[in-house]
Design a protein around this nucleic acid. Structure first.
Length: 432
DNA sequence: GGGCCGTAG
DNA sequence: TCTTCTACGGCCC
């Protein structure tokens, strides 16, 4: 990614985002899902994380639990898919690739969103965005909307307008909208709709008499900073058109890496928790290794369900390793520090492994004094190679080397094939 | 620096 | 049947 050295008057920020990304990705490969209400479910088939417009029209809210929908799904004509992250990840890279070829710069913000840099007059910028939208649809089959403005926060807002106002046809250049229309919009939209203003802050703002975006933008910036934080003041200034949120440099290595999963049924004893931690630590090690990183600190944690208030327990154990490592053996051993803190009988709903103080693998290797035997033997890379070639269930260390899927393993009962990344799951087209 | 909170998608 | 997962920044002590 390259960053413009200066902000010129004809530099604009675009926010491109795929409409109902997971549902749209499923529809590319299964056209029977088009024009139907469709939801994509979270891990464990727990709740809806992506909804088609038709599903939204049925009144299904984001995050609604699937077990409550399932009984009536057929009658509603509602289709569901388990989330297929391999497919979405691959589709996402295709979209990001197109964006980076068609724009001055691209900052990938999430799996389905990117900020882009565009230059020129308002009309030129609008034409460029419309072209980008058409190209993404042509090359990937995915529908996107584009919002364009002088700041990230306003580009986000413009993107929402592009989605909601049919006349805009999916592209909204904020400064091209008549001022009276913009002001009317800002005076109607609740302040919580702004990027960066969440539920808590919105509630506190409301209590101060600030309920619309317009009222927030016109509030005293220093009062906002004092009552909240610098973050909210930046948001306010961005709404006034002053860029305060810079482009993020693409980082080779993140600050932390976390692997966590909810269980399909609660875990109540230490043996099962030990198995889970072994598997999770190995998954964390695999990801760390794939990112070419190693960690100094490992935290293993577990928690009961939020919906189980009377028995709430959230133990965690942090271990500082003698030296940086991405070795599954080392991470697994460290994660066992949690076990003594597990109370038998408590119903744990979720566990996770967080690794922090990351650095690129091999950095300062010579200064480390010694390298562990497992690392010398390259156990991690070997495990990963076997998993890649024979599937992730093929091999595991210690308690993780289980043949049968344990009872707490996650449910993914309605998963689509990995059409774009596995030869044996390619889409078959029948012509008859 | 660690723990917690809030936010985002 | 009982509610996702990952990452970051800021505040506070």
């Amino acid at each position: 990614m390259s960053t413009p050295a200066i902000n010129r008057a004809d530099d604009y920020i675009g926010l491109v985002d795929v409409n109902a990304f997971y549902v749209s990705a499923e529809r590319v490969f299964d056209p029977l899902l088009i024009d139907r209400p469709v939801v994509v479910l979270s891990n464990n088939d727990g709740c809806c994380v992506s909804l088609s417009d038709e599903a939204k029209a049925l009144g299904i809210p984001m995050g609604y639990p699937w077990f409550k929908l399932q009984p009536g799904a057929e009658k509603l004509g509602l289709a569901a898919r388990s989330s297929n992250y391999e497919l979405y990840g691959d589709m996402s890279s295709r979209v990001m690739g197109i964006l980076s070829r068609m724009t001055m710069w691209t900052e990938v913000y999430s799996i389905d969103e990117a900020f882009i840099g565009l230059g020129g007059s308002l009309d030129e910028v609008h034409a460029a965005a419309a072209h980008i939208k058409r190209e993404i649809l042509r090359l990937t089959g995915l529908p996107v909307c584009v919002g364009i403005a002088k700041t990230k926060t306003l580009a986000k807002l413009a993107n929402q307008a592009a989605k909601k106002v049919p006349e805009l046809a999916g592209v909204c250049v904020w400064d091209r909208v008549p001022e009276s229309t913009r002001e009317q919009l800002l005076s109607q939209l609740p302040v919580g709709e702004v990027w960066g203003i969440g539920r808590r802050v919105a509630k506190r703002l409301n209590a101060m008499g600030i309920s619309t975006i317009q009222e927030f933008r016109d509030a005293d910036q220093f009062r906002i900073r004092d009552k909240f934080s610098i973050v909210q003041m930046r948001t306010l200034l961005e709404l006034r058109g002053t860029p305060c949120i810079p482009m993020e440099e693409e980082r080779e290595l993140k600050d932390q890496l976390l692997f966590s999963r909810s269980f399909s049924e609660p875990i109540t004893d230490r043996e099962q928790m030990e198995q889970v931690l072994a598997i999770y630590a190995q998954r964390a090690a695999t990801r760390l290794h794939r990112q070419n990183g190693e960690a100094k600190v490992v935290t293993a944690w577990a928690m009961t369900s939020h919906f189980n208030e009377d028995q709430s327990h959230a133990p965690s154990a942090t271990v500082s390793l003698p030296s940086h490592s991405a070795d599954p053996v080392v991470l697994t051993r460290a994660s066992k520090a949690l076990l003594p803190k597990i109370t038998p009988g408590i119903r744990y709903a979720k566990a996770g492994i967080t690794v922090t103080e990351l650095r690129p693998a091999g950095a300062e290797q010579m200064l480390d004094g010694f390298v562990s035997t497992q690392e010398t033997k390259q156990v991690g890379p070997l495990l990963e190679k076997i998993r890649t070639e024979h599937g992730s269930a093929a091999i595991g260390l210690g308690s993780a080397g289980l043949r049968e899927g344990p009872s707490w393993q996650m449910r993914r009962e309605m998963m689509s094939p990995r059409y774009t990344t596995h030869w044996d799951e390619l889409l078959t087209v029948h012509a008859d």
